[in-house]
Amino acid sequence: MDLFTLTVVNAFIALVATGVLAMQGQADRQFRYQRYFLLAGGCMLLNAGISAIHFSGILLPYWLIPALTNSLSVGASLALAAGIHRHLQKPGKRFGLLLVFILLFVLHLTEFARSDINHRFLISIPVVLLLNLWCISMLWQHRKTELGKVYLAFIATFAFNILQFVFRTTFMVLEQHQIIQTSIAPVVHNVGFFALTAFAILVFCCIILLSHSQQRQMLQQLSERDALTGLLNRRTLELRLNAEFSRCQRNNSTLCLLLLDADYFKQINDKLGHATGDLAVQHIAKIADQQLRDYDLLFRYGGEEFLLCLPDTDLPAALQIAERLRLAINSAPLFTPQPYFLTVSIGVASSKDSQSWQTLLQQADQALYLAKHQGRNQVQSYQPTAAVSR
């Protein structure tokens, strides 16, 4: 297959990929990183288009090919790196990548780059390799997250691109120094074009896979989260508690549940309105979330009730956490706009006294009722001998 046909095929693939990414970007505007992937597709399309015109026999000026085409090839890698950087929400500005592109184009216009193709390789190839390695480094740090399999696919794709660039560059250097036979050069160049095409297709597939996986992840999170507070909802409670209770039993450790209820919540709704009641629920949820450890679980259990799951925590430690949480809520006023101080009652139960998570939840509920019965605004633990009539 001649170079003109190969570049036309590359241009067609880039056109399709860019069109799909543009439509996907319109449909999923919340994924702002996709604009960078669209820019990468545009760079590939423009590069392939200019190359196709050149290989058709039309003489183009140096600033178009190879100066601009080489810069666009690097620009695609820059845009991919910027998209991954944006997707992973890494700190730092991405404007510097545009400056790198401009600098590369200017360097290609110098006499140093004009004089020898090896000089142009020296300018562009190291930048592409460093960008690909940077992408691999960023993605590798997140390989154990929920999107880890997608990131590993990206890593494999960038590794493939690095290998093909190293192979092609090594061959061209050896060819320049007449170390290998030049008769196989057309075959190697064709393989190189096929490798670039394969890389473009693989990257495109990874981008689509990333978008679909993130959409699925968002839908799953929406089904698991409470709309008002963003906490885990009651639908996910059974699955999560069952898993944590089973794990603690296997490890012979203790699991504690805290059932928290806002005191006199009906008065807030009646006197201040349901909108203020919603603010109060959000206020408690925010404080509770700030007080917990990374591995604790926080659910919105009911209207003004919250359930806290504390793995690997014994009863004395759970009581300390509950008291600290109660004091934190008491000391942080809700502004309505006047300051309004909330109080909460908390019931605590330990898995040492139960054989199932359902029983543990009932015991936490009994402890909460005991706290309410004894005057509210306090923490009580489950007492097997205590009988409180409702």
Rank of each mutant, 00 (worst) to 15 (best):
S73K: 03
I123Y: 08
N377Q: 14
L342D: 10
D263R: 06
V281C: 02
A17R: 11
Q363D: 07
L297Q: 05
S124Y: 05
L279D: 14
L21D: 02
G25K: 01
T7A: 03
L38Y: 09
G49H: 01
G347V: 07
L370C: 06
D312C: 04
Q141G: 03
A387M: 08
E304K: 00
A67T: 07
S183V: 14
L68D: 02
L325Q: 02
L209C: 02
Y369T: 09
V9N: 00
L98K: 03
G25Y: 03
F265P: 07
R94C: 11
A285H: 00
G49A: 14
M138F: 00
L107I: 01
I179G: 11
D278G: 01
R86W: 12
I162Q: 08
L80D: 03
F4Q: 00
C135V: 15
T182Q: 14
V74S: 14
Q362D: 10
D353F: 06
P186A: 10
Q358L: 09
V203D: 11
D314S: 10
L255K: 08
A364K: 01
L46F: 04
G375E: 12
N252H: 15
A386Q: 15
F341T: 00
L72R: 06
L219F: 06
A76H: 02
S331I: 01
L78M: 12
Q366F: 07
L78C: 13
Q378L: 14
F31V: 03
A52F: 04
A195G: 15
F265W: 05
L202S: 15
L239T: 15
I102S: 12
L368S: 08
Q320L: 12
V188W: 04
L147S: 10
F165S: 13
L131W: 06
D226L: 02
H108Q: 15
L241E: 07
M172A: 12
